[in-house]
Design a protein around this nucleic acid. Sequence first.
DNA 1: GATGAATGAGCGTTCATTCAT
DNA 2: CATGAATGAACGCTCATTCAT
Lengths: 204, 204, 204, 204
Amino acid sequence: MPRPSQVAPRRAQLIRALERVMAQQGYEAASIREIAQAAGLAPGLVHHYFPDKESLLVALTADLGARWLARLDEAEALAPEARLRRLIELHLSVDEARPEELGCWLQIIAEAARRPSVGVVWGEVVAGLRGRHVSALAALAASRGRAIDAEAGAAALLALVYGALTLGPSAGGPPGYAAAAAWSLVEGLLAAAPRPDGPSQAAG
Amino acid sequence: MPRPSQVAPRRAQLIRALERVMAQQGYEAASIREIAQAAGLAPGLVHHYFPDKESLLVALTADLGARWLARLDEAEALAPEARLRRLIELHLSVDEARPEELGCWLQIIAEAARRPSVGVVWGEVVAGLRGRHVSALAALAASRGRAIDAEAGAAALLALVYGALTLGPSAGGPPGYAAAAAWSLVEGLLAAAPRPDGPSQAAG
Amino acid sequence: MPRPSQVAPRRAQLIRALERVMAQQGYEAASIREIAQAAGLAPGLVHHYFPDKESLLVALTADLGARWLARLDEAEALAPEARLRRLIELHLSVDEARPEELGCWLQIIAEAARRPSVGVVWGEVVAGLRGRHVSALAALAASRGRAIDAEAGAAALLALVYGALTLGPSAGGPPGYAAAAAWSLVEGLLAAAPRPDGPSQAAG
Amino acid sequence: MPRPSQVAPRRAQLIRALERVMAQQGYEAASIREIAQAAGLAPGLVHHYFPDKESLLVALTADLGARWLARLDEAEALAPEARLRRLIELHLSVDEARPEELGCWLQIIAEAARRPSVGVVWGEVVAGLRGRHVSALAALAASRGRAIDAEAGAAALLALVYGALTLGPSAGGPPGYAAAAAWSLVEGLLAAAPRPDGPSQAAG
DNA sequence: GATGAATGAGCGTTCATTCAT
DNA sequence: CATGAATGAACGCTCATTCAT
């Protein structure tokens, strides 16, 4: 009986280790030796499971993205309004619930700007986030009988939430300002949208 | 007559050089040698004018921030609505008008998360941005006879604009979506605010 | 019935693999992993059949040498003059007929200078080559009734042929210069040799 | 007064160090740290004066070649026969007079086969050696009133001498066999050449 | 002030070798 | 026998920083 492959668990170990080290020190400062130590492995093993350091970062990006999207998908089954609220909430809670994750994302974005391999995966993650927002927003609009530009609305919503996360406390708003503003934005978009099957709101 | 001090121009030269190099390669990859070369100076000079590399980054952060704030201040004299529109516009045009600057900011944010000296200056820059938004928003509200929570509104506005910049085309909205949504948000906030000296919102 | 030993074919496989890889990349750059892959075997197997990398090189040296000597022995049955001509021709054709082999030899000679274990085997190969030349030269001399110093003559002949191979096209002579010169040397040596049982050279 | 450039002496120091280390251990095994230590310099300095290890090898190849050719040029002023004898003698004495140099050449040839940058310089050195032999041989032929193919003759002479050097004692000839054979080859070539202005030797 | 030589720690990566399975 | 995971030393190279000139 062949020994079971060590590839999957070892790769996961190393990805977790990079996540921990990178959140604290950034990608460049996270040395292979440190990552290996954080994973409890010998330094040489890192290159046994990943061809180079950058591909480990790509794997982490994909992994963090997949986890994020999976979390958002828990909201899929909710009713339209609750679903969108939950989406916003799940995003905004990252900085409290998973500060390491947020720290990683900041580093990943900086690296994505210069490393195509990272940029591609980061772009796919954002596309996934955007897709969730578009469909949730469209569902909500449909439930209220409104026709909105869900692409534009979702982009703005994502930008607001993402900006609030990225700026963190520097933005300076009162607690919960971002969720409130996000919802104001949603309501504003819906209010401004015409009823496809009747007179417009402005005329109502 | 003593030779006039070269300190200020030399420091400015080096700050500009770091800006150019960092926008392309990131902070860690911008070597002292390369920065000096981009500035047309000998490598050893860098440490004459800055104690170390990090302090050069701090100086660049402060310089970029000051330039940004100065640009925003050109809008100060405008009428309230035009002023706020201009503020939003000036922010969102950074990615087209000064792509290098945007690239630098992404790097600075990532470094700010791990280097207190950078974080402090970055925080001050954001505070400055926030202040401009708060006062412009308050002025607009006053001109319309509305009482709004300008702190929260400005934070949300800043987050939206900043998120749109950071996400860039990944956000996926149609061209100009961010400016439109930012203005929707402003209008939404104003519409939701009570008239302190008149009838309630519901009747407005 | 016990499974027949795999030792000999496996070793041969690995020796062939080292030959292929080394001809292209040199000995140091030929990694165990690459050699194993070229042989279609698992990396760990290399150390089952050879205690270390150097002993694999020694085995290759011995194997290449044995093949070379075996090829020369095909000339043994020829008449004296044809035999020596064939010897020279077989040597000089290595760079066209087996460029990989020539590439290996250059690497082996460099390693032989620093690795006693390789040097010994390389010395034995040269001794074998020399022996063939000595006996062929002696046979030719005998057939012509001349007494020559076959040791010195064979050494010079070997040096010429070997130098021509090693220098390759760098030497810059016209095509076939080496074979022609080698034969001139042979004739010169024979012409200069006394007839032990006849009139002196001057009268020959 | 500017400090005199350290480039030339430091580069020379490092080239000498590589020569010493490489003669004993070969190129791959000569680590940058070891080379630096042999030169009495800090390891980091090696890359201050040479962009990489290979360019140091190229510099050594050029330097060894230049020294070799310069030594041969000391024979230029001699009378034709003495000049050619001296050329042969200078070559063959390398293994006794400068064993390190010979060791280096063996390594360089092996590297030249796989590193184009080394191959080019090595080719130029051989071309220089060849040129000296061609002109010396032509001068000798002229002084004797013979017309020979100096290109072919020089190539063969070079091959013989070079092969004898490369094989070293493995060739197995008696002491001095190579010089004697080289001279036999020269005399043979001259004897076989026609007198351009008179009846051929064979008919004389 | 200005230069670039000098330092040595540390980087990502490769590798021969060992060994549990 | 066979596998490939595991080890850790060593490699070429980069770099911020220092300092004699």
